[in-house]
Design a protein around this nucleic acid. Structure first.
Length: 517
RNA sequence: GGCCCGUUCGUCUAGGGGUUAGGACGCUGCUCUUUCAAGGCGGAAACACGGGUUCAAUUCCCGUACGGGCUACCA
């Protein structure tokens, strides 16, 4: 009785999609691809109080950026539409009623206020209040009220919820694909609200009903759901759906960089790291964030990094494309312990992808950043710059800064280095070289190198003496690509003018007193 | 507090009754080199603790400690 694999990613549009959510989506996607199954997106927007406009669009856009397009979902439709829970409320209501009819659920009239009072009371007595088999007979519900009274209240439209009637003294076991058998004693499980007073289902009801109706075969979700899985199994049993109950796989949590708790949106600001895939413009600055994209990450690198947070293929290979991940993926390789978010490792993955990228492709990725700081350079020139800078980048956003002197004029000069290396003889030397260089037939790196070397040889100076001067004159800094490569990219004219301007500038600089630090 | 889950270098992890406990990030040394990177070659660095079981436990079992999650008419 093996059914075609169907998995779902079921986020709640209460804000931007957290990076842990992206990982959950990724694992679901990989599992679906691995088994030739279907990956669907279901939007769990049953809490109108926490609904945030724009969040669903954000989720969709994030998945698209990552390349994790759902096979079915609100946008792409599918045989089980609608895929937005707010559009399915009659389905849940009917199912909740069905449970009442079966005696597996009941109506409850207790108000949130009265329940809160009970909780407070219990807390002061040093215990915890729980709406369960022990307490429900002392509360206001269809189990304790006369049938006529219940009917009257319901007919009068009195606020009421439907609760699951958890059986006492039983044991529920789940065979989790990641953790093995997990057992719950029903005496520890409360009578969860299934249908809220506003007619909307809670997660527990909606989730089980939809997973069943949408023929979900595997539920791959975060570990925070493990404690309520007992309820979920009870629900499948109450509906008589045990035979097609999905298998569960609970993923380890992604922890804060310091390991103290699960990663949350506030950690972005706290640790100076991205925790969202894309930027999010909230209502306030504190609620607005830059994402991995805005930090300069490639989606493929983010995915690769995320895949390895809680999973590994069991080999030494670390760099995987999305199809490769899908081929290698398996649930039994998922680790059990929480994984700390390691920003250095994330950057390393990005760096690896940047290194492996063709300059022409890199140029298209880097273009927006270049434009953002006001540089306009031709495609061919940008590609050349990318070729030289590729190995020095770990983020796309590094390029405009590190290659500033190739994209535009030299803006910053390392005065300390100039003072150290520029002496009274330097000017004559550099100007003489500039003269030689302007006569070079073909202005490319190889030819230039030859010219400069013979120039140095003729003058009897060491190349190591000359190069730093050229580098400083051309770039203003001691860091960067090979000088001859820079020259080629800069071109004959720019090299000539930079050399001459630097002579003026450096002479003056060296003559002036160093600033007190 | 109760319930559930977890624990191999600082971090992500491989491994599994007998191993020099492997890899990666980070750190670090050397090398390459006109600089900075990248690359190459090295180095330091781990089985939480206590009991069992066993000829043998880091590996299996039980405790303890520590960490995490859940404990809403939120998901």
């Amino acid at each position: 009785m093996t059914r075609p694999v169907r998995v779902r990613f079921a986020p709640s549009p209460t804000g931007p999609l957290h990076i842990g959510g992206v990982r959950t989506a990724l694992y679901n996607y990989l599992f679906a691809r691995k088994h030739g199954g279907t990956f669907l997106l279901r939007v769990e927007d049953t809490d109108q109080g926490r609904y945030v406009p724009g969040a669903e669009a954000y989720i969709t856009e994030s998945l698209r950026w990552c390349g994790l397009e759902p096979d079915e979902g609100p946008e792409q439709g599918g045989p089980f539409a609608p895929y937005r829970q707010s559009e399915r409320r009659t389905v849940y209501e009917a199912h909740a009623q069905e449970l009442v009819r079966r005696g597996a659920a009941y109506h409850a009239f207790d108000t949130p206020v009265s329940l809160e009072a009970r909780r407070l009371e219990a807390e002061q007595a040093g215990t915890a209040f729980r709406y369960d088999a022990q307490t429900r007979m002392g509360l206001e519900n269809s189990l304790t009220l006369p049938a006529g009274e219940v009917a009257r209240r319901l007919a009068a439209g009195e606020p009421a919820v439907i609760r699951l009637k958890v059986p006492a003294g039983e044991t529920v076991a789940v065979e989790d694909l990641v953790r093995g058998q997990v057992v719950f004693n029903t005496d520890e499980l409360d009578d969860k609200v299934l249908l809220k007073a506003d007619g909307m289902p809670t997660y527990h009801l909606a989730n089980i009903v939809d997973d069943h109706l949408m023929e979900i075969t595997h539920v791959i979700r975060g570990e925070e759901w493990l404690p309520s899985t007992g309820h979920h199994v009870l629900l499948y049993q109450a509906f008589g759906w045990e035979a097609t109950m999905p298998r569960f796989a609970h993923l380890p949590l992604i922890l804060k960089p310091d390991g103290k708790g699960k990663l949350s949106k506030r950690d972005g600001a706290r640790f100076g790291i991205p925790v969202f895939p894309l930027a999010w413009d909230g209502e306030s600055p504190e609620d607005s964030f830059r994402g991995f994209r805005e930090y300069g990450f490639l989606p493929s690198a983010v995915l690769n990094f995320l895949a390895f947070l809680g999973w590994n293929p069991g080999t030494d290979q670390e760099l995987f494309s999305l199809p490769e991940l899908a081929a290698a993926f398996s649930l039994d390789k998922i680790s059990k312990g929480g994984a700390r978010f390691d920003y250095d490792k994330a950057k390393w993955f990005n760096q690896q992808y940047l290194h492996a990228m063709e300059p022409a492709l890199l140029a298209t990725w880097v273009r927006p950043w270049v434009r953002a700081v006001g540089y306009e350079v031709s495609d061919s020139r940008l590609q050349e710059i990318c070729r030289l800078m590729k190995d020095r980048l770990s983020l796309l956003s590094d390029l405009p800064e590190q290659a500033a002197y190739l994209l535009g004029p030299v803006r910053a000069v390392d005065a300390v280095q100039v003072r150290k290396r520029w002496d009274p003889t330097s000017r004559a030397l550099v100007e003489a070289l500039a003269g030689v260089l302007s006569d070079v037939a073909v202005f490319d790196a190889a030819g230039l190198e030859e010219q400069v070397k013979s120039f140095a040889a003729e003058r009897g100076i060491k190349i190591g003496q000359l190069m730093p001067l050229l580098r400083l004159a051309l770039a203003g800094t001691m860091q960067g690509p090979m000088v001859f490569d820079m020259m080629q990219v800069l071109g004959r004219e720019a090299v000539r003018t930079r050399l001459h301007e630097a002579c003026e500038h450096f002479d003056r600089l060296v003559a002036s007193p160093p600033e007190a630090v």
